[in-house]
């Protein structure tokens, strides 16, 4: 126990400030009312779905929980079931074999079911495109609120996308 405590003290707190929301990532308008967003605060629960990625995006999503980005510290955590989730974080082009699973997970998510599509593949189909085996971009299969491009997007870009999904719509 003593060596662990020493290590914790030596490492210190490395957490950095979260990025600001970026309105440019939004595909649709903010569907949530200001009152609802106030209610939600940033106490957001995410269900991650890998719909067919190369697993590069997953590495960066994992990084969101490391001490530098420390997503849980700002009230955002990952859940094991879509039934517990406010937001689906979907990576990959949607593989044909995953289409049903993705739709079922979406159906199981309680409204208002925010969806953030992750990576160039999630946004456009990426290098895999559409084919007999790939449905392409996530929005071809379920409605998407925010799309975060990048191959893969960095943890900061991912955080920005997630925060955009729960940010009040910017005044135009």
């Amino acid at each position: 126990m003593i060596p662990m405590l020493r290590q914790i003290i030596r490492a210190g707190i490395v957490t950095e400030a979260p990025p600001a929301a970026d309105e440019a990532l939004r595909l649709t308008g903010q569907r949530l009312s200001a009152a609802m967003l106030r209610q939600l605060g940033r106490a957001l629960v995410i269900r991650h779905i890998d719909a067919g990625s190369c697993n590069g995006c997953e590495l960066e999503i994992h990084a969101l929980n490391n001490p530098y980005y420390n997503l849980e510290a700002i009230g955002i955590k990952f859940a094991a079931s879509p039934r517990h989730a406010d937001l689906l974080l979907v990576t990959g082009p949607v593989a044909k074999n995953m289409e049903v699973a993705v739709k079922r997970a979406y159906d199981a998510t309680p409204a208002p079911k925010l969806v953030v599509a992750v990576g160039d593949c999630g946004c456009t189909g990426g290098v895999f495109g559409e084919s007999y085996a790939s449905c392409g971009r996530v929005s071809n299969v379920i409605p998407v609120d925010v799309a975060v491009p990048g191959c893969p997007p960095t943890p900061l870009q991912l955080m920005q996308g997630i925060l955009t999904a729960i940010a009040p719509a910017a005044a135009k």
Binding site: D50, G52, S53, G92, P93, A95, K96, N97, M98, A101, V127, F128, G129, S131, Y132, A133, S134
Partner: peptide
């Protein structure tokens, strides 16, 4: 397995 099959070889 095979859920992520996205046709890489044909691509």
């Amino acid at each position: 397995l095979g859920w992520k099959h996205k046709g890489i070889e044909r691509r």
